[in-house]
């Protein structure tokens, strides 16, 4: 599961070169008949350092449906840390539940227990040592070039790394204050086990001179890394859609979609300076 970096590099190098550069490939939105599956439970839960847990419980909907997904209002949710502190979450609205007292701390593992109609689902995740963005810069993209008049830039990011721990990192890129990230990158500690700081130039995200880019660097555990790797396969199918798609594996088991993750993040903003 940790082969993410190679997989993406392959698609980037080969398919984008071929499809983008050479051939007159074309994309078109089409109508297609899809079955309507029975609704399935979806849990989107997280706890961040210094903040209480939040959980959103909803159900799957038809793929082309524009309606808001159905959500669950009657779940009973408890979060417990590895020091045996626990708290019941309260329902707010739109399927969202939050805690108030129990806040995320590094080094602790959190268990989330959710009971709906006498059925209980449990998931676990651990907050590892937070990472810090030591430096955030950019470099001009000098890849295939030629086709764009406007120069494109890649982020150059330096993060702290705890060499004593098996860390995993996720970096989300937000453009011009957007709430939702443009895309994200994942890295596993096995490529930099002994480095105190690690520098990356992720090629999958590029931006232009007018963009203000906010970067959030998350420190995540192995399970979260695997889940987001799988999720990326599904939501970012560009060019590579030939492998069999699937549902990313939940830490609540096979009856549930979604994930519960405990994590921390650091954020910074960058913009291309006038020369």
């Amino acid at each position: 599961m940790k082969r993410y970096i190679f997989h993406k590099a392959m698609f980037f190098l080969s398919l984008s070169a071929l499809l983008g550069g050479l051939l007159q490939s074309c994309e078109e939105v089409i109508d297609i008949d899809l079955n309507d599956a029975a609704p399935k439970l979806v849990i989107d839960g997280q706890i961040v350092i210094g903040e209480p847990a939040t959980v959103r419980i909803s159900y799957t909907s038809d793929y082309f449906s524009d309606d808001e997904a159905a959500y669950e209002e009657n779940a009973s949710i408890t979060i417990t840390d590895s020091e045996n502190n626990s708290e019941n979450l309260s329902y707010i609205e739109n399927g969202i539940y939050t805690g108030a007292l129990l806040r995320g701390k590094p080094g602790l593992e959190y268990s989330l227990s959710i009971t709906i109609d006498d059925k209980t689902h449990k998931g676990k995740s651990k907050i590892l040592t937070p990472t810090q963005i030591v430096k955030l810069g950019y470099t001009e993209f000098d890849g295939f070039g030629g086709s764009q008049d406007e120069p494109e830039y890649n982020i150059v990011i330096t993060l702290t790394n705890n060499t004593e721990e098996d860390n995993y990192y996720m970096v989300k890129y937000f453009i011009n204050g957007s709430e939702k990230e443009d895309t994200y990158s994942l890295w596993s500690n096995e490529y930099f086990p002994n480095e105190e700081t690690i520098e990356f130039t992720p090629l999958r995200f590029s931006f232009t001179k007018d963009d203000v880019v906010t970067v959030k660097a998350y420190s995540i555990d192995e399970g979260t890394y695997d889940y987001y790797s799988e999720l990326d396969e599904i939501i970012d199918q560009q060019g590579g859609g030939s492998s069999t798609p699937f549902n990313p594996g939940s830490n609540f088991g096979k009856d549930v979609l979604g994930y519960f993750r405990a994590w921390s993040y650091d954020q910074q903003t960058v913009q291309v300076e006038d020369e």
């Binding site: 909803s58 799957t60 793929y63 709430e179 549902n247 979609l257 979604g258």
Partner: peptide, 24 residues
């Protein structure tokens, strides 16, 4: 091929939901 038979929202993303392999 495998196409989705539904979708769900996770961490701000609309994620396709698959129910069977090679069903389409």
């Amino acid at each position: 091929v495998t196409f989705p038979s539904g979708k769900y929202e996770f961490d701000g993303n609309q994620v396709p939901y698959y129910t069977e392999r090679n069903g389409y």
